[in-house]
């Protein structure tokens, strides 16, 4: 057994496909990004090494700062609006029994299986100033309904609404599974003690859900950092970079502004930020779990 399980050629043959994919599609592009990040390459012609100039420029780039701020805003939106709602709805849904429970769960998740391409264009129409759904709803409440939802002031909030709406079902489903995994004996004990729904929720559901909440919060922050698709189609970072996100910005810099080198420098910083954020969040939550 031992001999069989330490056969080097066999091990190599099992690991090689995975390693090759990783080297070719993840590691190689990162190395290439690091190289181009040190150049002034425009996308055509010669690439000239310019040292840390790109990184120095990045420090003073207000659009990049705006991108990070927007990610932070989105993360706050997820954690303060989407997640509390998702936990509450999950807890309420858990109380419901029978067919209705499955139907509601199914409905809440539907937006998640729809392509971002459809979602983004659909919301563009919903925000449309002439015949959009939102202005029509405003009119139904007696408002003149001439709001420009994607103006420089409003756009970032409109983008946040779409993202919070779209991801709601995902968060809800994970909290719902977490609640289903709580030992029912705890709820029986609470009900014998005469605890009402709210007390049970605050004293049993929430504390028992701590690990699930931590995972979900981590994922929310990471996905807020990585946001690109919806913004790319809905506003493309505009007007005036007010809805810019890092991934979208590096793409624009490379392919629209022809600063391929600069785009790659942003990419390198972006990767570092994402890795640091993941590691930091995992460490914080691990320490807390042990304490």
């Amino acid at each position: 057994m031992k001999k069989l399980y330490s056969n080097k050629p066999v091990i190599l043959s099992l690991v090689l496909p995975g390693l090759l994919v990783f080297l070719f599609a993840v590691l190689a592009p990162i190395c290439l990004s690091v190289y181009y990040g040190f150049t002034d390459y425009s996308g055509m012609g010669e690439a000239r090494l310019i040292g840390f100039d790109n990184y120095a420029n990045l420090f003073h780039d207000s659009a990049f700062g705006r991108s990070l701020k927007n990610s932070l805003l989105l993360a706050i939106g997820f954690i303060c609006i989407q997640h509390p709602l998702a936990i509450l709805v999950a807890a309420v849904l858990d109380k419901l029994q029978g067919r209705a429970e499955g139907i509601f769960r199914c409905i809440y998740f539907i937006p998640n299986v729809i392509s971002v391409a459809v979602i983004a264009y659909l919301w563009k129409f919903i925000y449309n100033p002439d015949f959009g759904l939102l202005n029509n709803i405003a009119k139904a409440f007696g408002h003149p309904g001439k709001i420009n939802w994607l103006s420089q002031q409003n756009a970032i909030w409109s983008v946040l609404i779409v993202l919070i709406w779209h991801g709601f079902g995902w968060g809800m489903l994970i909290y719902y599974t977490g609640i289903k995994n709580i030992d029912p004996v705890l709820y029986e004990a609470a009900s014998i003690d005469g605890a009402n729904w709210w007390t049970t929720f605050m004293r049993i559901t929430l504390p028992m859900m701590k690990p699930v909440i931590q995972i979900n919060v981590t994922m929310a922050i990471i996905s807020a950092l990585k946001q690109m698709e919806t913004v790319y189609l809905l506003t493309n970072g505009g007007p005036n970079n007010s809805t810019q996100f890092v991934a979208n910005y590096l793409y624009q810099q490379a392919f629209k502004a022809f600063k391929y080198g600069y785009g790659n420098a942003i990419g390198v910083v972006f990767i570092i930020i994402c890795v640091l954020a993941t590691v930091t969040l995992n460490t914080i939550f691990k320490d807390k779990q042990e304490a």
């Binding site: 592009p29 990004s33 181009y36 590096l250 391929y260 785009g263 972006f270 990767i271 994402c274």
Partner: peptide, 18 residues
């Protein structure tokens, strides 16, 4: 660890070099 670490890398950062 190396293979799992790929989870942390933002896909969109590899768009340009890829």
């Amino acid at each position: 660890t190396l293979l799992v670490m790929g989870m942390m890398i933002p896909i969109h950062a590899t768009l340009l070099p890829n």
